[in-house]
Amino acid sequence: MRTVRRGTNRVLLGLAGAVLLGAGAAVLMGGLDLPAKWHIGLPGGWPWTSPGEVLLPRGSRTRWTDRGWWWPVVIAVLAVLVLLSLWWLVTQLRRHRLPEVLVDSGDGEGALLRGRALEAVLAAETEALEGVEGAAVLLTGRRTQPRVRAVLALAPHADPGTVVLRFADEAVAHARGSAGLERLPAEVRLRGVRHRPERVS
């Protein structure tokens, strides 16, 4: 599914880039009067052949403006385009959770482990480490090559270097061994926990 999505994204980006590049080149040629300078014979009806021409003639701009449906349709189409663009942007920026991990069961076929189950085990073991007051774990990547993204909330007295080392040597190493993975790369973000001050009387 992710491969199909990436292929679709590349095709759409390529088409959009080609259209924008072609339109920009046509406008640039007309604006710099390149057809006349380079003696390029353009086909009849070719737009933007000289600097004096506008992108949209007045007739094209005002053809439907006197119709009652024109502006609602224009606004609706632009709104749909904006929403589709925002949806596409959000899907590109969102980090997708890995639904399952392929575990080597020793029989040559393998078994599937739920990604959320492995995330829960990793988070629980990480929160049991000294100096860690909270952990959020997310599995990304492919089911044969998962990756770990973790956000650890550290106690005020915690040593960040020690926490990261223990996270890698204990929690991640145990998860890698239990899933039969050769590698389990991890990206860790640390943040401090702010405690509310208490009044002592």
Rank of each mutant, 00 (worst) to 15 (best):
M1D: 11
T3Q: 10
V4E: 00
R5Y: 12
R10N: 07
V11K: 08
A16K: 07
A16S: 14
A18H: 11
A18S: 14
V19K: 05
L20I: 07
L28W: 06
L28R: 03
M29Q: 03
G31A: 13
K37C: 05
K37I: 08
W48H: 04
S50Y: 10
L55I: 08
T62G: 06
R63N: 01
D66N: 12
W69T: 09
P72T: 00
I75F: 08
A76F: 02
L78V: 11
A79K: 02
V80G: 02
L81A: 06
V82F: 05
V82T: 09
L83A: 12
L89I: 14
T91F: 13
T91N: 15
L93V: 15
R95L: 06
L98C: 00
E100P: 07
L102V: 15
D107T: 15
G108M: 12
G110H: 07
L112E: 13
E119V: 04
A120V: 05
V121R: 08
E127R: 15
E127T: 14
L129H: 01
E130N: 04
V132D: 02
A136W: 12
A136R: 15
V137A: 02
R142P: 03
T144N: 13
T144D: 15
Q145W: 12
R149G: 02
A150D: 00
V151Y: 04
V151R: 13
H157F: 10
G161I: 02
G161F: 03
T162N: 06
V163R: 01
L165C: 00
R166C: 03
D169W: 07
E170V: 07
A171F: 01
A171H: 02
S178N: 12
G180W: 00
R183K: 09
R183N: 07
L184I: 09
P185C: 09
P185K: 09
G192V: 10
R196E: 07
P197M: 00
E198T: 08
S201I: 06
